[in-house]
């Protein structure tokens, strides 16, 4: 995400605010991976993730005037994506139509990042977390945000963020054979 933010310049942001097509394209290219990945890992399927990513970018397009900087842009995208995904998951839970992974044909397969078995295992563990806890874990380990930034993004007290992280990691450790804790992570919590 940080690399993407560096690629997108302040000048391009100013042009995008004025509706410049090239600048808008650069904006999309710079941030689509982050938004799409967050949506995909929150919602679990490509279709829903594409829907959500498209909605987020359309909403951004209508609100570009209010974006003050590149950092604000990244913050805004993460926040809107996470909130919309959490809303969708809660709505899905209310309607009792939660699509379990095993029954859903549209699994994403991120074979180019790491061991596919581990990928699948962690994905299934992520899906067992509550929507808020899932968002916290994704912002921490996908977006590499620290707990303070996560708290700001999700409008949560910092202690709630730390509590979500701690409980989620404990849960994942219990379910992952041979997993060890990292001393550095424990210190941040």
């Amino acid at each position: 995400m940080n690399e993407a933010v560096r690629q997108f310049t302040d000048h391009e942001l100013a042009l995008a605010r004025n509706g410049d097509a090239q600048a808008l394209t650069a904006l999309v290219l710079a941030h689509q991976r982050s938004v799409y990945s967050l949506a995909l890992r929150m919602l679990g399927t490509r279709d829903l993730a594409e829907d959500l990513a498209q909605d987020v970018f359309m909403q951004l397009n209508r609100n570009l005037k209010s974006i003050e900087s590149r950092e604000h842009l990244a913050f805004w995208l993460r926040k809107v994506t996470a909130f919309r995904a959490i809303d969708q998951l809660r709505q899905r839970a209310r309607l009792a139509t939660h699509l379990k992974s095993d029954t859903h044909a549209d699994h994403y397969n991120d074979a180019d990042t790491c061991d596919p078995l581990l990928q699948r295992h962690l994905k299934l563990l992520l899906e067992e977390l509550s929507p808020a806890a899932r968002a916290v874990v994704l912002l921490r380990y996908q977006e590499d945000l620290d707990p303070v930034d996560i708290a700001r993004t999700l409008e949560m007290p910092i202690n709630t963020v730390k509590s979500h992280l701690k409980r989620s990691l404990e849960f994942m450790r219990q379910k992952t054979p041979g997993a060890r804790s990292s001393r550095g992570e424990d210190e941040t919590l």
Partner: peptide, 12 residues
């Protein structure tokens, strides 16, 4: 686990 998560959760 944290390293595994970081590796597994790289943006797609």
């Amino acid at each position: 686990l944290e390293s595994q998560l970081r590796a597994a959760l790289r943006p797609i």
